[in-house]
C-alpha cells in the first residue's frame, strides 16, 4: 500500500525566506555596485588625497539598495 503524505508550506517560513532573500540579494547588489566605485575611489585618492570625502560619498551611495532591502524585509516579517 502506498501512503501519501501531505506537506503544507508554513506561511511563516515562506515569509522568513522572502525576508532573507530581500536582504541577501540587495546585499549582493550593493556589494557589486560598491566594489567598482570603491576601487575607483581609492585609485582617485591615491592621486589626490583631498578626494576622500567625495570618494566616500560616492562609495556609500549604493548602500541605499541594501537599506531598502532591510526595510522591505522588516515589512515582510511584520
Amino acid at each position: 500500500m502506498v501512503t501519501e503524505t501531505l506537506t503544507v508550506m508554513d506561511p511563516a517560513g515562506l515569509k522568513a525566506i522572502g525576508a532573507g532573500l530581500a536582504v541577501g540579494l540587495t546585499g549582493i547588489a550593493s556589494a557589486l555596485a560598491e566594489k567598482d566605485i570603491g576601487s575607483a575611489a581609492i585609485g582617485a585618492m591615491a592621486e589626490n588625497e583631498s578626494l576622500f570625502g567625495k570618494g566616500l560619498i560616492l562609495t556609500v551611495i549604493p548602500e541605499t539598495i541594501v537599506i531598502f532591502g532591510l526595510v522591505v524585509s522588516l515589512l515582510i516579517i511584520q
Partner: peptide, 12 residues
C-alpha cells in the same frame, strides 16, 4: 525613504 536607514542600521 533613505532616512529609514536610521532605524534599519540601528536595528542591525
Amino acid at each position: 525613504l533613505s532616512y529609514t536607514r536610521i532605524i534599519a542600521v540601528g536595528l542591525s
